[in-house]
Nucleic acid binder design. Structure first.
Length: 272
DNA sequence: AAAAGACCACT
DNA sequence: AGTGGTCTTTT
């Protein structure tokens, strides 16, 4: 569900609670989203009495390091993963999958309706295995290098976390629109100038989400609740493009809804 | 390397 | 029907 900015927002939000106390108990049940080789009793043994020393993020993945732990707790939120930071015992959390009770009385709860997220316990060096460079921390020339071999449509290639980590369906659509690139263009046909534009557009869109995380609610959650769509093309098929007024199209690429403006993002070969 | 399907359980 | 993500399997 969440893409890079939302995961970064979670990272910032769980840190103050997690870093200021030791784990005193662990609750949850086996099965997804827990990795197949991981049980709650494993986690209990590994985490009780330990304190979180850092929460790192690369792309959409979080890595939690605990004192004296031999491994790292890796969390991928999938599409519906989210956290609850409880300062005192509140109402039951829907879809609760993992709960860390902390020595100052608070608790960190991981909830995941679809159980499509992953919680795993891996050697420190493997936390970010399989992920490319972080989308927010990577210059456009580096992006360009990592896509030179890809014949896939650029929209699909952007979702490949092994090239650049953190771009999901929404920011792929938003970035391509801002850069004026058709989602079906083969990734390797993009020029350096287009990469500069695209990488910056994706980063700008992500930064905008980050900056909108004011004192309270997560943008993508509050947006859902209030039915406000903060994006330029994502989820706006049939509406006029805010740039040129032409009707926004929806297609399916990489198995997912892909939104674009046929006028701002011309097909290859029809560029004026 | 790329496409398709699988997974899951909701709105 | 629709879903913002990954895995694995097939071509």
């Amino acid at each position: 569900m969440p893409e890079l900015p939302e995961v970064e927002i979670w990272r910032r939000r769980i840190w103050p609670t997690l870093s200021t106390a030791t784990v005193i108990d662990v609750h949850g049940s086996s099965g997804p989203p827990l990795a197949p080789d991981l049980s709650i009793s494993d986690l209990r043994g590994a985490l009780i009495g330990r304190q979180c020393m850092r929460v790192d993020r690369r792309g959409k993945r979080l890595a939690l390091q605990f004192t004296e732990a031999e491994r790292t707790l890796v969390i991928q939120l999938g599409m519906t993963g989210r956290f609850h930071v409880e300062s005192s015992h509140g109402p039951e959390v829907r879809f609760e999958r993992l709960r860390l009770e902390l020595s100052h009385g608070a608790a960190l709860v991981y909830a995941d309706a679809r159980r499509i997220g992953r919680l795993s316990w891996v050697p420190h060096g493997e936390a970010f295995q399989g992920l490319g460079a972080d989308a927010l921390a990577t210059e456009s020339d580096e992006w360009s290098k990592r896509f030179t071999e890809s014949r896939s449509p650029i929209k699909v290639a952007l979702l490949d976390q092994e090239r650049v980590a953190g771009v999901g369906n929404i920011y792929a659509c938003e970035g391509l629109h801002a850069a004026g690139i058709h989602p079906k263009r083969a990734a390797r046909t993009l020029t350096p100038a287009e990469w500069t534009h695209l990488a910056r557009a994706i980063q700008a869109s992500m930064q905008q989400t980050l900056s909108r995380d004011g004192a309270g609610s997560l943008l993508y959650l509050s947006a859902k609740e209030t039915n406000v769509n903060p994006f330029v093309v994502y989820g706006r098929a049939g509406e006029p493009c805010p740039t040129c007024g032409v009707t926004i199209c929806r297609d399916i690429l990489g198995g997912r809804g892909t939104f674009f403006c046929p006028a701002c993002q011309p097909e290859a070969g029809t560029v004026a």
